[in-house]
Design a protein around this nucleic acid. Structure first.
Lengths: 248, 248
DNA sequence: CAGTTTTCAATCATAAACTTTCAAAAACGT
DNA sequence: ACGTTTTTGAAAGTTTATGATTGAAAACTG
C-alpha cells in the first residue's frame, strides 16, 4: 500500500468517525505499528490531525462530535479483526449474504476490489458498499427503526429469489449446548433463512458473546463456522475441539 | 506497446484511482520497470502527475474529494412547495408508496404525526422516515449506486405483495402528448408497477420539467394527478384545463 | 500509590524503491 | 543494406521506507 493511500485512508477514517485508533489502522492497512506512527507524525506536522494517546483525532473534534454519530468503540479492534478474517473467506465470483450489524459492516472495506455480488438486509451497509463499488442487492421488508435492519415477511420472501455461496451472520450468543442465539426473533428468522439458502455459513462473534445465551435460537454450533478472537481466559475452551471454528 | 499507449494507460489509471503503483503498471503494460520509471519521469516533467515512492498520483488528489460535497439545491424552494402540497393529500390510516428521488424526499417532514404506512424504493428516505417514526417498508432490489434507488426484478416483485391508497412519483418529463417520462427505463418500470397497485397516483414535477420529454414513458397524463408549481411564463398553459392537476 | 499493562519515541538492520549508467534491440532515414 | 538515433531492459550503487526491538512514558488497576 502506498504511503499516500494510507494517509488518505487515515484522513478518511477521521472525517467519518472523528477519532481513530492505531490498532484499527493497522488492521485496515496491513502496515506495521511503526509505519502508522510515522504516518500520524507526518500528518500531524502537516496540520491535518492531532495525535492522541492510542490514535489520532481531527483538529476540531468538537464540531465533528456534534454532527456525526460517534462510532461505538467497544471491542472495535476485535470486531475489525474478526471482520477481516471473515472477508478473507470471500473469493471472486461469489454471491454473498451480508447480515445487518456492526461486525459484518466492518467486513466491507476488506471486500474492496473483489468481484462479488452482495445481498444484505442492512440499510447502513449500503453507503459503504456503494463507495467500494460492490454490486449490491437489498432485501425488502419492514425497517426496524433502531438498527436500520430489514426484517419480516417481506425480507424473507425476497431472499427466496437468491442463493448464496457464503453467508456471514452476526450472533449475540454462542453456547456449547444452545448453539447460536440472538435477541430479536424477527432477525433470528432472517438469519435462519439466509442460512438455508447458503452453501457455507459463518457466524461472527467476538469473545464477549461466548458462553452467552440470547433469546432466539438461530442454529446449532455445527451448522455454521464460528469466527471469533483469542482471549487470555479459557472462554474458548469448550469450542477448541470443534472442526468449524476459526480463531483470529 | 507504444510509448504513447503506455502514457495514456498511466493517466487513465490515475484518473480512475487517484494513485497507481509501479508494479501494477508493469503488469498492465508488460514493460520493464525501467521503462515505466522513464514514463513516469516524463509525465511528471510534463506536469501530468506527481511521482511518489512506489508509484505516482494525480497532481491534486484533493480535487477528487472536493467533487463529493453538495448536490445542487436547484429549485429547492419549488420542490419543497410541491412536496408540501403532495403531503397534504395524505390522510391517516393510509398506505402510501413514496418513490425514490429528491422531490418525494421533501415530503417526509410534512408526513410527521400522520398515522400511515410508507413503502419506498428510496434508500435515502429511510433516515428521515425513521426520524419521524413513520412505519416504513423498503422494497428490495438492485442498489443503483448513484441515486441509491432500488430497481430491477427484486423491487417489482416485492411490490406485488403490497397495495397502496396513494403513490407519489417523481417524474423528469411532462408533455401534453407523450405524458410522463423519466430517463432510466428501470426506474420507469418501478414507477409503472407502483401505479398499477395504487388507488390514486400523483406525479411531482417542478416547472422545469414541463413540456420536456425524457426517454422512458411512465404513464399518460390522465393516469396521474400532476402536482406542480406556478410560473410567470405560459408553460402551464397546455395543462390548465386538465381535471387532474394541482398547481401550488 | 505501587504494580501492571499499554502506548510511545528512538534506533537499527533489512527490504524495497530509486537513479544512473550502459549495452543490446528496435526503429528510422538515406 | 548500412549507419544513426531512439527506445528498452538489466545491473550497479544510492536513497528511502519499513518492521522489529528496546527502554521510557503514559494510562490503567486495585
Amino acid at each position: 500500500m502506498l504511503t499516500q493511500e494510507r494517509h488518505q485512508l487515515i484522513l478518511q477514517q477521521l472525517a467519518q468517525y472523528g477519532t481513530v485508533k492505531i490498532k484499527e489502522l493497522i488492521l485496515l492497512t496491513d502496515a506495521s505499528e511503526s509505519t502508522i506512527r510515522r504516518d500520524l507524525s507526518e500528518l500531524e506536522n502537516a496540520g491535518q490531525l492531532t495525535r492522541i494517546h492510542g490514535g489520532a483525532s481531527t483538529i476540531n473534534t468538537i464540531s465533528h462530535e456534534l454532527s456525526f454519530p460517534e462510532k461505538s468503540t467497544k471491542n472495535q479492534v476485535e470486531k475489525m479483526a474478526i471482520a477481516k478474517a471473515a472477508a478473507s473467506m470471500v473469493e471472486d465470483e461469489e454471491y454473498i449474504y451480508l447480515d445487518a450489524g456492526s461486525t459484518t459492516y466492518e467486513m466491507i472495506p476488506y471486500l474492496q476490489n473483489k468481484k462479488i455480488v452482495v445481498v444484505t438486509n442492512g440499510i447502513t451497509h449500503i453507503d459503504a458498499l456503494s463507495n467500494y463499488e460492490i454490486t449490491t442487492y437489498l432485501t425488502g421488508g419492514y425497517v426496524k427503526h433502531n438498527t436500520k435492519a430489514l426484517v419480516g415477511q417481506g425480507a424473507t420472501t425476497s431472499m427466496e429469489s437468491y442463493r448464496f455461496d457464503k453467508c456471514f451472520l452476526g450472533v449475540n450468543g454462542v453456547d456449547f449446548n444452545y448453539g447460536f442465539t440472538t435477541p430479536d426473533p424477527e432477525e433470528s428468522f432472517i438469519k435462519k433463512t439466509a442460512l438455508r439458502y447458503s452453501q457455507k455459513s459463518f457466524a461472527l462473534a467476538d469473545f464477549t458473546k461466548l458462553n452467552k445465551v440470547s433469546f432466539s435460537k438461530i442454529a446449532d454450533l455445527e451448522d455454521m463456522t464460528l469466527i471469533t478472537n483469542e482471549t487470555e481466559d479459557n472462554r474458548l475452551l469448550p469450542y477448541k475441539n470443534l472442526s468449524n471454528i476459526k480463531v483470529v
